[in-house]
Design a protein around this nucleic acid. Structure first.
Lengths: 347, 347
DNA sequence: ATCGCAAATGTAATCGGTTTCATTATGACT
DNA sequence: AGTCATAATGAAACCGATTACATTTGCGAT
């Protein structure tokens, strides 16, 4: 005696409709090749039985999983989750589902060991990597599905990438400060090993070099509120305060502002601050933050589209998405600059 | 001629080791029942071929997917993504992977239609629902895997739940304000249909009733920074300003504070603000926010554990996690209260 | 040596679909 | 009516593992 609550199988539908299982399968996957009469009969039978395909069986036969894996450094970080939202949207439109793995949640002993098991064609049809700190060797085996790098990237891992224009963004930010007359600009960076930090540092260097200025002094942070806050102490301990700070992301900028304001500095009167990313919070910070807008959801969408495109035409494309400066209240003309301007006028 | 790059199958390993496929399978899944000699031979063959099991085949045979689906209302919201991080951690320890679906990204025409396809045993072994606004009927069919509700819940959907103690949290927040002498307390709520809003409103009502005070006036928000900011205008338009506001979450509180400060009000001197959730940003807000701490990662972990426990002992448990008040700088004694205290002394 | 039981291993069924290939039905054209 | 191409359908192979069941092996007890 069979469990009456058992899910109906394609065989049950076929029997009820008086056709073969092959026909039922065709009605479901390619209705155009089956006659009107039988199609209707099958659809009726599907309706009556409440049949839904068993995806495990279908996937096994079709040798595809119907899912894409996203590797994120920190799932709890809104920066990444917004990219994920973009990825998710594109995947759903294609009927694919999104698997998420937090790369920092691995066994601390061997961070990559647990990951390798997930980098397998039988787990996911593709991988979107949002963590630039991974070992490229992880992806270097036959069983690894197609990979797209997004946002961050991995040196030594060839393949398509979708990136924001970090260098231009940083350059625009610094040029904005230079235009306001700032000359003593400090760069609050992300971890120096991080690819984002590196390309943003390049933008900073380019802007300063173009203005004939020496490289900016740096404080290294960790992209976190906390590290931004901690940087305020380091900054205030310096002999000569900078007149402006460019921060590699908004979270650090907000942490930094909190620390500076607590120490009695006024923003932007005493010190100008620029961030990067334009997270939603930045508009509502203690002082609305001037920052570089990066369209994260779009970046996610593009990454997913790039991955899907790989199926038909594998090519190691590199897509660089434009960014733009958003000027709010955390930046103002340098006071030195004002003095100079006043002197010029009086002269 | 076979593709030399094709992934090795269990058959290849068996041939190389000179054993049957059954033995190879046993070495991989239950090594103890195979002799030392053959086990080593098989392990060597696995090593040489670089074999890894095909999960689609295994899953089909074992009738399980190896994945859990999380239904979140907004993937980009850090509040949820931190819960996801907790879920993810627990699942990984069990070798399960995490599928994520943003319930608001469905076809706007019929929000639940797209979802139903995902609520299927052949897609996921279990479901963790973080969205209380879904139709309970969605889950009411035989093919739906076991469900655990977390954080929010769905009226009319029986089954295990893991919740923060929203009512107590709200009550503690309001009692804190009452203790500071506030009597004119406004409640900035989430959407009135939201279960979280409702239970927090219950806590607010309980605290006020216990103090013999009438219900608090409300402004309805949407749990977003923007709606919190918008609420500031509505608040300032009122004839009599409240001396304190309890906000249903930190994001609204931060948005509200930004609006109030822009209008020239000082926090906490002119008005006290309490939030809920204790998101990381709250400590770095323009004024460090007094709020109710909710352990989101733990909530996620518990939800995952509850789901796993359902496998062996299905039971509609309800787990309520404690919350605690975190007092920072956004709350201070009511000025009325101070006046009253002064008068009392002088009398 | 023989028996019996347990341990080790092999054979083949099974999971539930999709898809190839063969077969039958349909219909157009001469 | 006969021929042939094409459309519609069915039978069975296949995807790649796990596992029930059968068989063989190993070993101690008699």
């Amino acid at each position: 005696m069979k469990d009456p609550a058992a899910a109906p199988r394609i065989h049950d539908v076929a029997k009820l409709a008086g056709v073969s299982v092959a026909t039922v399968s065709r009605v479901l996957s390619n209705p155009s090749i089956v006659s009107e009469r039988t199609r209707q009969a099958v659809e009726k039978a599907v309706e009556e039985t409440g049949y839904t395909v068993n995806l495990m069986a279908r996937n096994l036969r079709q040798q595809q999983v119907g899912a894409v894996l996203a590797l994120v450094p920190n799932l709890a970080n809104p920066f990444f989750s917004e990219i994920l939202a973009g990825i998710s949207g594109t995947l759903r439109a294609e009927g694919l589902s999104l698997l998420v793995l937090d790369t920092r949640q691995t066994d601390p002993g061997s961070p990559s060991r647990g990951l390798r098991a997930y980098l397998n064609r039988s787990r996911a049809d593709g991988v979107i990597v949002l963590d630039g700190s991974l070992d490229p060797a992880l992806f270097d085996h036959a069983a690894c599905p197609p990979v797209v790098q997004a946002c961050e990237w991995i040196d030594g891992l060839v393949g398509p990438r979708v990136l924001a224009d970090n260098t231009s963004g940083a350059r625009m930010a610094v040029e904005h400060l230079l235009g306001l007359g700032h000359r003593r600009i400090l760069h609050l960076t992300g971890p120096s090993a991080n690819t984002l930090s590196q390309s943003r540092a390049a933008g900073v260097a380019a802007a300063l070099a173009a203005a004939g200025l020496p490289p900016a002094p740096r404080i290294e942070g960790a992209f976190t509120l906390k590290s931004g806050h901690a940087a305020s102490a380091a900054l205030l301990a310096q002999a000569e305060l900078p007149s402006a700070v460019f921060c590699d992301n908004d979270e650090m900028a907000i942490g930094l502002m909190a620390g500076l304001r607590a120490a009695g500095l006024r923003i932007p009167e005493d010190i100008s601050i620029v961030g990067f990313d334009n997270i939603e919070m930045s508009a509502y910070a203690s002082v609305p933050l001037t920052t570089v807008r990066q369209k994260r959801a779009q970046l996610g969408r593009r990454a997913a589209e790039t991955l899907l495109a790989q199926r038909s035409a594998p090519a190691p494309t590199e897509l660089i998405l434009p960014v733009e400066l958003v000027v709010r209240d955390s930046t103002a003309p340098a006071r030195d600059h004002l003095r100079v301007a006043a002197r010029d006028r009086s002269a």
